[in-house]
């Protein structure tokens, strides 16, 4: 996985999710919960991983723990951690 700064990670994640799920940029707050704030459901969560893998050109799902990644900030942290461990 290619190294990125946190700002680049946030931009890549937000751009991918806004495009795929037709979200508004103002909804993309770090504390936004995928289910209660962004209105996603379990099928969307599956799509999210597929879309992010395409955006980052990397496998995310081997260690992806659905129950632990609830907010955008959790997701940024998870991807940053993956990059640091790569």
């Amino acid at each position: 996985m290619e190294k990125m700064t946190r700002q680049e990670i946030i931009k890549t994640v937000n751009d991918a999710l806004i495009k795929e799920f037709e979200l508004k940029p103002e909804q993309m707050k770090p504390e936004a919960n995928f289910f209660s704030d962004l209105g996603l459901d379990s099928l969307d969560a599956v799509d999210m991983v597929i879309v992010l893998e395409q955006a980052f050109k990397a496998k995310l799902r081997a260690n992806y723990e659905v129950g632990k990644i609830l907010t955008l900030n959790d997701l940024y942290d998870y991807i940053e951690q993956l990059m640091n461990n790569a």
Binding site: S42, V46, V49, Y64, V66
Partner: peptide, 10 residues
């Protein structure tokens, strides 16, 4: 059931 499952698990 897709709840709490990743695409890999499904």
């Amino acid at each position: 059931n897709t709840d709490n499952a990743t695409s890999a698990q499904i």
